[in-house]
Structures are given as structure tokens and as C-alpha cells.
Amino acid sequence: MLNIDCPWCGKRHETEFRYGGEAHIARPEDPAMLDDTDWAAFLFMRKNTKGYFAERWLHSHGCRRWFNVIRHTVTHEIVGAYKMGEKPPKLPKPAGGAK
């Protein structure tokens, strides 16, 4: 079970959180300007990363803040959590076994 570092509350068990999928996918400013292909890309296309992955979490049973986490999808190593609008932390070199 993951131990997730809420930027406000500190490390808490996974059960207090809700997963929010890939981070840094901004809603288009003016969706009407997008053609079907670009709109579909925004709606449906997500990375399927093997390695470090930026994802969104909600501390749903705690402070109800949405924030971002860099997690390694193979080892579950969490490099860091950061608030919305903050820059992601520097990525370490890929861990053993996963590239």
C-alpha cells in the first residue's frame, strides 16, 4: 500500500486518497477552437509510462487538496509531491530494472 506525501498533511496511507490520473493535462482554453482529433487527444489520450510518471492525487479523506506526485510505475517509488502550480521535482536517474 502506497504511503503518499500530501504536500500539506505529510505521509498518509493510500486509502485516504483518490487517484486523479495523469497530471499536467490542462483543459484547453477554448475547446471550441479544437478540431475533433485534438479534442479527442485531450479527452482520451494518456501516457502509459513505465518509469517516473507525474500523476494527480486528491487527499479526499484529509485536506481535500488536489496535488501532483511523481511516482515510478514499476517500483512505486515516490520522488516527490508538489502543489498545483508548482514545478515538478527533478527526476532521479532511472532505478534498477526499469527504463
Binding site: C9, G62, C63
Partner: peptide, 9 residues
């Protein structure tokens, strides 16, 4: 702290 007690917030 806000957490879960049993399965309730």
C-alpha cells in the same frame, strides 16, 4: 487529523 476511522471519514 482528518483520516479514516474504520471506513468512515
Amino acid at each position: 487529523v482528518q483520516t479514516l476511522i474504520a471506513k468512515s471519514q
